[in-house]
Design a protein around this nucleic acid. Structure first.
Length: 424
RNA sequence: GGACAGGUGGCUGAGUGGUUGAAAGCACCGGUCUCGAAAACCGGCGUACCGGCAACGGUACCGUGAGUUCGAAUCUCACCCUGUCCGCCA
């Protein structure tokens, strides 16, 4: 959510930001409406407060006269008239504020100046790591998994539906290994505090991080209780400090969490239908950081480095992609995707997405910090990134570590967790 | 799910419908005293919005939302949360 002052003072900047996202056609008229609504809102606030001040003064005088035993019927009558008027004006004010909020809650964040404008064709590969293994002779992960019984999509479809997976045997053990390996690295070497959170969250949390109101159709919802299954651990972890004021000396704060993630993938029909590349439920270890605005630039680099470190330890070649404004998520101001090489499917798979949200989420979730004693609270900056998503990482491991005899070597760093050095 | 008891400022904790943004204490900040510190004493100490260059003025906020009233922390209703007991349950 944007500061209303942006509408008042820098509406052109907001328009330009939407243009860079290729969203001006859709949002331009809405922004124009905001300008009028904002003006109307302020006039109504002034009108209401003026009358409230008069009513308060009148009430004081009523109290004084009653104590003095004097009549106050005239003041009570004028107070009642003021009250009626205030009621009417407040209805109008409520309408204006709701209309304004409805629009503003659906305006995406402003991307940073170094984010390229336009759609995904303007994404930039900023660097890459490792030597991508040629695809020749490498089977896709679903073939490997079928041979060694690593996961069972047919039975998952029977018990849940398409887009769900049952991992079994060595496959299940690999998932558990990823979970422990990722969390161990982030807590022991990268300085994150580990948290284990609910995966069912309320509407306020989903709105705080920006999934709602615009993307309600993408989320699994428990209608009876107005709860949502989290699409990412970003939601519960970022909302940890919703409506709080943090001590500036504590910043930056860093959290890592393992959670399952649930996505309806509405609009993704027909994409990545083979294997486990796009699931309704998948597992992920997430990294979340809170920092002061001045730190967020370096914090993003730090976060990205932590995610990259996992791929390097696993020995999986990857590339770092800076997303163009039009490809950048709703709440994000700047996003780097980490794409790992999957020789079997012959594609770069997005295994992590690292973003800074500047103060966009903090404003929605009301997360502030006090820079120093006696100073005014300011909004924090929030960042998050996957470190990493399990299914695609698993696919990359199977395909990169496939041996000529068909077996799969277990990456060195995972061996203590898996308990063996090969599958097959 | 049922029955009680509660939800007030960073914390503890008062608060008869009418100078209550809210007593008091703690914590915190500044000052006096001191060689320094502690103690004592004095003063300060919430957030947001509206207007104003500013000084400052105004409005709102005592779990949330409605309602009664000239006026609500205080009365009414609904909801949420916490605690305790019962039921159920991994």
């Amino acid at each position: 959510m944007h500061d209303v002052r942006l509408v008042r003072e820098r509406l052109d900047d907001l328009r330009e930001a939407m243009r860079r996202r290729d969203a001006l056609d859709a949002l331009g008229p809405q922004l124009d409406r905001c300008e009028g609504l904002e003006r109307e809102r302020r006039l109504l606030i002034q009108a209401v407060e003026e009358r409230k001040a008069a009513r308060n003064a009148g009430s004081q005088e009523v109290a004084r006269r009653k104590r003095a035993g004097e009549p106050a019927d005239d003041l009570i009558a004028s107070g009642r008239a003021l009250g009626d008027e205030i009621g009417r004006l407040e209805l109008e004010l409520g309408d204006a504020e709701r209309s304004l909020a409805t629009i503003l809650l659906e305006v995406p964040n402003i991307t940073l100046p170094d984010v390229p404008a336009g759609d995904e064709s303007n994404n930039v590969i900023v660097r890459s790591w490792g030597d991508p293994r040629p695809s020749e002779g490498v089977r896709p992960h679903w073939d490997i998994a079928a041979q060694y019984g690593l996961f069972d999509l047919e039975r998952a479809a029977k018990i849940s539906g398409s887009g769900f997976a049952v991992f079994r045997g060595a496959g299940s053990r690999l998932v558990r290994a990823l979970l422990n390996f990722f969390l161990d690295v982030h807590t022991r070497e990268h300085g994150y505090e580990e948290v284990w959170t609910p995966v069912l969250v309320n509407r306020g949390s989903m709105t705080g991080t920006g999934q709602l109101p615009k993307f309600e159709d993408d989320a699994y919802k428990i209608a009876d209780d107005d709860l949502f299954l989290i699409p990412t651990a970003e939601v519960p972890v970022t909302n940890l400090y919703r409506d709080e004021i943090l001590d500036g000396a504590e910043l930056p704060k860093a959290f890592t969490a393992y959670t399952p993630c649930f996505r309806r993938e509405a609009g993704s029909a027909g994409k990545d239908t083979r294997g486990i590349l796009r699931m309704h439920q998948f597992d992920k270890v997430e990294l979340v950081r809170y920092c002061a605005p001045e730190q967020s630039e370096t914090e993003l680099a730090t976060l990205l480095g932590h995610a990259e470190s996992i791929l390097q330890r696993l020995g999986i070649p990857y590339r770092v992609k800076l997303l163009a404004a039009g490809d950048t998520g709703f709440s994000s101001a700047k996003t780097y995707d980490l794409e790992a090489w999957a020789p079997g499917v012959g594609a770069w798979l997005e295994v992590s997405s690292c973003s800074t949200f500047t103060d966009f989420q903090a404003r929605r979730a009301n997360i502030r910090f006090r820079p120093a004693k006696g100073e005014k609270p300011r909004f924090v900056h929030t960042l998050n990134g996957s470190g990493l998503a399990f299914p695609r990482t698993l696919a990359c491991i199977l395909e990169n570590y496939q041996q000529p005899d068909g077996a799969v070597l277990v990456p060195e760093v995972l061996r203590p967790y898996v308990g063996s050095d090969r599958i097959g």
